[in-house]
């Protein structure tokens, strides 16, 4: 099995790890302790593994770790800073955008990517941006409300 050294910026820190050539990004990230990255399906069906690669949402379960060499990877673990949850995290917590929580990290990362592009998206845009993140618990109502609440908080800040 061929291995290589992989350089990535993970959650703001440069690191270099030995990985298998065929290692998936989801396994690599979980392997270095970032278990907030979830896997809910067998390949690219549910969005639970969504992380940001150079700011864009990416399904880590169908991304070869080697293919993002040198890029910036962000996971759910990067959002809370100095013991403070990000606006999205706080909103998902307070508005019950999370029930069982399994889809939540991926959902929040997709929403994060959207809000970076677009600070005040319409409901339609929110739903479209989250269209690849499946949630079985919430019917999405409170997820949409959570994202809207985070936008309102940002606008008010």
């Amino acid at each position: 099995m061929a291995r290589r050294l992989l350089k990535l910026t993970v959650n703001g820190r440069d690191r270099e790890d030995a990985v298998d050539d065929h290692a998936l990004l989801v396994d690599h990230l979980r392997g270095i302790g970032l278990t907030g990255v979830k896997q809910g399906c067998d390949a690219g069906e549910c969005g639970a593994c969504t992380v940001l690669v150079d700011g864009e949402p990416r399904l880590a379960c169908i991304t070869l770790a080697a293919s993002v060499e040198g890029q910036r990877v962000e996971t759910i673990e990067s959002l809370a800073q100095n013991g403070r949850m990000s606006r999205l995290q706080a909103a998902f917590h307070e508005k019950l955008g999370t029930q069982c929580g399994f889809c939540t990290p991926g959902m929040i990362m997709s929403a994060e990517a959207l809000l970076r592009r677009h600070a005040q998206p319409s409901e339609r845009e929110i739903r479209a941006a989250l269209g690849g993140n499946v949630c079985r618990c919430t019917g999405y109502v409170k997820i949409v409300e959570s994202v809207q609440c985070a936008c309102a908080a940002a606008a008010g800040a």
């Binding site: 278990t35 759910i76 939540t104 990290p105």
Partner: peptide, 15 residues
């Protein structure tokens, strides 16, 4: 809000 909600939104919840 859920008493274990913070773990869920921060990715700290261990399944």
């Amino acid at each position: 809000p859920l008493i274990d909600g913070i773990e869920k939104v921060t990715g700290r919840a261990r399944y």
